[in-house]
Amino acid sequence: MTRKKRRLTMLGLALLGLGTATALALTAFQDNIVFFYSPSQLQTQQVGDRNFRLGGLVEEGSVHKQPDGVTTAFRVTDTAHTVDVSYRGQLPDLFREGQGVVAEGRMANGVFVAREVLAKHDEKYMPPEVSEALKQAGVYKNPAESETKTAKKE
């Protein structure tokens, strides 16, 4: 009986140690685990000339196709700050105004030049009729709301 108890205690201690070590490691690597920076984080973060990811919402009414037909200009916002983005190439199907987006690229003359644009979606799922009805009832919540929550948390 005592051997079982000793094994149980050892197991408990080992798991406790393991958990603590993991928590410490994750805290230490916090910066590297961050998949993207929000426009507000960019204000304080020194990014310089290096490649990084920018995440936020595509600002309503900011998307413009450039005359060359392949370049798209838009603004990424977290409601507090915005960043101008320019991107040459095919946009994902979920890319639209008011929706989340993660772009990879670098800053050039105050404009974020994206090499890749990924669409981020929120955790809401509903049929089109329901979203229509919610909009008409005035309780429709823009997908932006949940996104800004994530962005502001930082």
């Binding site: 994750l26 685990i33 961050v34 993207f36 920076y37 929120d122 955790e123 809401k124 994530t150």
Partner: peptide
């Protein structure tokens, strides 16, 4: 906990 491309739980 982190900024991910994957959306939160539904």
């Amino acid at each position: 906990w982190w900024n991910t491309l994957h959306q939160p739980a539904s």
